[in-house]
Amino acid sequence: MAIRSSVRRRKRVAFWVLLVLSIVWMLPLVWAIGTSFKSAEEITNNVLGIIPMNATFKNYQDLFADVSQYPILRWMANSFIIASLHTALYLVIASAAAYAFSILRWKYRNLVFGILITTMMIPSVANIIPLFSMVVNFGWLNDGWRSFLALIIPGLGGVFGLFIIRQFFINIPREVVESARIDGLSDLGIFFRIIFPLGKSALMVAGLFAFMGSWNDYLWPSIIGSVVMDPNFLTLQTGLASMQSSNNYEYGKTMAAAIISIIPVIIVYMFVQDKIIEGVSHTGLKG
């Protein structure tokens, strides 16, 4: 009995601590959203107000009136094109490789996979300069559209998503594959008709991470963008950063742009948060 009541008390304490903490955690975000609807005057005079006294869309209107300088919808479209293409290509290429590393059997398979995993130790900082030199030499930075190649392709060799997909494929019972083979399915048939549908959840997790990584990437696109020098071909992240570092830094407009950029992410997150959190928790358990 004593333990029961102590458990109950503990739950109550944990609840209140978490509640306070999560309010603290959300406050900056909520305040930022509120502030993006404040007038220039209220930004200075009503600093603490979370809900503006005279809410106005002016910051957003100014932002969209200035599309030639800050084409934010264009940036979003760019980021969406880049992240979608990158994710689609990566899922096909990495899951094919995962198939070879899990369903197909060959000599040295596990050794080769082990080497792949070990290379995750190579610090990415050492690769940035040579990669930059490579994409310049490929001519990928010669015009805006081609510069997207530099943002889509180099990441396709990433190990992390392959690892997630392979961990899932390897737990698919052998009998499923064998019976499909007896039914006369080729490897291509097994891959597309059996493994792909079965591995949907792993592909979803790997796809989410690929998309998020590409969508949120900042350092690499900022290097590419600094060479292409055409505001129409910036990604959303480099575009936002260019607004922030511009000489005539305007609070309201910049905040409105930041809010516009995070709203779709938050909406998508609300729908897929369980998949993301589950995916992350697995990386720790099977590391």
Binding site: M255, I266, V280
Partner: peptide
């Protein structure tokens, strides 16, 4: 879900939001 939310946001948006905080 709340504590994980900021992780999915981009550093450039976070930079703007926190620079202002």
């Amino acid at each position: 879900v709340i504590f994980f939310l900021p992780t999915v946001l981009s550093i450039s948006a976070i930079g703007i939001i926190w620079k202002w905080q």
